[in-house]
Design a protein around this nucleic acid. Sequence first.
RNA 1: GCGCCCGUAGCUCAGCUGGAUAGAGCGUUGGUCUACGAAACCAAAGGUCACAGGUUCGAAUCCUGUCGGGCGCGCCA
Length: 540
Amino acid sequence: MSESLRDPVERLSSAVATVARRMAGNDELSPALDPSPRPEMGDYSTNAAMMLAGPLGRPPREIAAELAASIEAELGAALEKTEIAGPGFINLFLGNAWYRQATADMAGTGGATVPPVGDPERIIVEFVSANPTGPLTAASGRHAAYGDALSRLLAESGHQVTTEYYVNDGGTQVENFAASIAARMNGEEPPEDGYQGTYVNELAERARAEGHEADDLERLAVTGVEWMVEGIRGSLENFGVRMDDFFSERSLYEDNLVDRGIARLRAAGHVFEEDGAVWLRTTDFGDDKDRVLIRSTGEVTYFGADVAYHVDKIERGNDRLIDVLGADHHGYVARMAAAIQSLEGDKAEFEAQIMQLIHLVEGGQRTKMSKRAGDIVTLDELTADIGVDAARWFLLQRSHDRTIDLDLDLARSQSSDNPVYYVQYAHARIRSILRKAADEGSGGGDPLAAPVDPSEKLLVAKLLAFPAEVHEAAAKRAPHRICAYATDVAAAFHAFYRDCQVVGAEGDGVEAARVQLCDVTGATIRRSLGLLGISAPDSM
RNA sequence: GCGCCCGUAGCUCAGCUGGAUAGAGCGUUGGUCUACGAAACCAAAGGUCACAGGUUCGAAUCCUGUCGGGCGCGCCA
């Protein structure tokens, strides 16, 4: 890659690293280069001198003076000056031309280019996977928004990603489900551990209309699940979630994958029999007790089937299996991790992301959600209430490992206060300016030579940070960082808009330069929102 | 009892592979539309970063302990 095509920030940071490594005689050293916290501290700052202080046994500020001189020599005209501050930070002050060139570079590529990660992986992200015995809840919506945004982030940072929903279409839950439908068809209450929701009545109605018999539980189970999956698919689609596949638990048996999976565990030597059941010795890999794969009745456990499913994911060529699980499943993680570790031969990294709970607050009261009792707010209701964009933002803006309260009254009544509109508004405003510029703009001159307002510097620095933000958010599995980033970009844009006229701006190349900056800002907001699955409207 | 998550502004939460004066939104108070969108901007008020030790030139961030809250510990799924 030629110097001129590389990321402008990357050029700075490699110059700093080169100089610091030379001085330290250590090629491993990687000093930080971060945007300065305040304008008087320059544009970018490095802690390189402080990192060298220990190894070299000299005061950091003394080292900083030498480093700064070398950095100036290395960077030449791009650099206006350097200053040494605080305990030994070197602050870099960049010239106007650097900012204009950086903006022009980004304009050429629709925003800053995200370089692919050094070690791209094939990753399969499994998320939602809610039982197909009822509609998706708002809590499932959090899983859906998170898993979807995480997948987009991982893909953006250079990984090869597929997404999957595991459909638990076997087992006792489904039997209860079928029994509940049957009871409703007979005009009776569902059984004790059955499903109470009104949607069961609707299913019963539909079953009757399509000629199902209440006593054919087998068939009711299959069709009932089919209908639910149909509905779930629709809800996810409506919510903007890209699911590459819905993987049926039953198909594991039909395709003989359960036997194969358990055979692989057996081959690895950690399977044993006791009390008539088949066990996996997960305690060999850090679990606190061993786990049953096949019950003494001969039935395969949920865990046994799920292990087979995960083995299949590995055999499909994935390097990393990410499961997005609810907090109530975190006890499950150790045994699955153990199962994957116990395998020999073809292996993959298993990683669980635990979602904490979401409490819906209505009328100041937390609503306790239970699917069986039918006491739920569905994802469809939530999106109908506050819209897909607002719902996704609400569900994504907080770290996934934290419990959140979602105040429905607030979301409904004050939805215009939702920060998502702040970001979307900035985008719409930019598009409006660009439309006007296309109509009236006459900006001549060389944009690269135009002066740069302080508010422009802050905005350009934010836009340049996009690749680093994407990589960090992906690496930390933290899409909520993109919400914060998008908000920052919007704020920086609004400040720029306050201080700088765009269309009709005076000065050689100034209008052209600012139009370009608007263009790059719009593209960056669009891409950020895109990662979150949120629309970027041209007007609102 | 053991394990996982969490405790930061009045409220909801960012910041956590250590870095300069700890941030945002909402709420409160006051100010901005004769430049391109006021769904915006500016200013003010508001903090023992749960508590106590420790490591460090430097701790909201790392370690240990305590207190408080949530979740989980099935031949259920």
